Amino acid sequence: MAAAHHPIADRPVLRFAPSPNGLLHLGHARSALENERMAAALGARLLLRIEDIDRTRCRPEFEAAMIEDLAWLRIAFETPYRRQSEHLADHAAMLARLAAMGLVYPSFESRAELKSLAAARAAESGRPWPADPDGAPLYAGRGRDIPPAEAAARVAAGEPHALRLDMATAMARLAGPLSWTETDATGRPQRVVTAQPERWGDIVLARKELATSYHLAVVTDDALQGVTHVVRGEDLFEATAVHRLLQDLLGLPAPLYRHHGLVLGPDGKKLSKSDQAEGFRGLREAGLTAGDLRRQLGF
């Protein structure tokens, strides 16, 4: 079905939503500045959301450094900031709604077991096992086949598990095709994109050790914060199909989207905290000014 947009609000709302699991790099700077530019063009509110649901990787010192770096860059976000870890009850409520619709089931395979299952199924069929848009094998387990009483008992016993979305059943609930609207840098709608969430298979919505997934948390927080325009890197373009599906299932408004180009490293790959890409803090310490950095990134 066509995207259901937010009702007319006093002002549009944008958000920049990094995770404090490392120092910000030039890619984050570009995304923050893209948000700032569109917010200025629209006369919008600009929010900063701390996406810290992964408590094993996110650290207070990274959050403090992130806020300091953004202040140095002279981006004025509204306060207080929203920390996802302080709103897990909101995410749990959305998960419970999906479960009540019969769209959630637990799976108990480890990541290694799932990799082996995908390889075994590929060998049986003589064809490569399908992968999601990020290149990861689709869920190859049999969680959907476990009797509900047995699954509930295993969860209650504390067995490690993931809670997954039954994608086929979820797609059957839709009244028609899904789409979203992409805008230009100033927020003007440019094109409508057809969403194909089924390409992601039975996505993870939560794990025993992680109360919510990125997908579920981001659509929940965007809705609760009244976000009307989502500006983020093109590496998340394909994930928008999943977000549109969850918004539709949960009756949440659909923001407009802009997926901007990425800042690439010398190897031609996107910058990554996990690869210890150079943070712009290092550039600051080398004498670069905020104005220099803005000009370097085209702002």
Rank of each mutant, 00 (worst) to 15 (best):
Q225N: 14
A157R: 06
A44T: 00
H87T: 09
R294C: 10
P60A: 12
P7V: 14
D202K: 04
W129P: 10
L14H: 09
E34S: 03
D184F: 05
Q276P: 00
M1Y: 07
G187H: 00
R244Q: 15
L98E: 13
R295N: 12
R199Y: 05
D134Q: 14
A112D: 15
G126W: 01
L271T: 09
P253D: 08
L42H: 00
E36R: 11
E234P: 00
R144T: 12
R30H: 09
L138M: 03
L117C: 06
S19F: 10
G102P: 05
Y81W: 13
R142S: 15
L246F: 04
M101V: 02
E109C: 13
D275F: 01
V218F: 04
V219I: 07
E124L: 12
V263H: 03
A9I: 07
E278D: 04
F237C: 02
A65V: 03
G126F: 01
Y105V: 08
G233V: 07
D134E: 15
Q296C: 09
R11L: 07
E36T: 00
L138N: 01
S125A: 13
L103C: 05
V204W: 07
R191H: 10
E68M: 04
A71S: 13
L14C: 14
S19N: 10
D69Q: 14
A172M: 05
W200M: 03
A290T: 00
V192C: 14
E109L: 11
R284C: 02
S274A: 13
R82V: 15
M167V: 09
P253A: 06
P148V: 14
R173I: 05
L249V: 10
G282R: 07
L249N: 10
A92Y: 07
D166Q: 09
A32R: 13
L236M: 08
L245M: 04
Q84M: 10
G268K: 09
P7R: 12
F108Q: 11
L46C: 08
V231I: 15
F77D: 11
D222N: 11
P20C: 13
H25A: 07
G143L: 07
P266K: 09
F108M: 08
P18H: 03
Y105S: 12
D248G: 00
Y214E: 02
H5N: 04
I75C: 06
P137G: 07
W129L: 06
E63F: 00
R55S: 13
E61V: 06
L33A: 08
G43H: 10
E113T: 05
D90P: 03
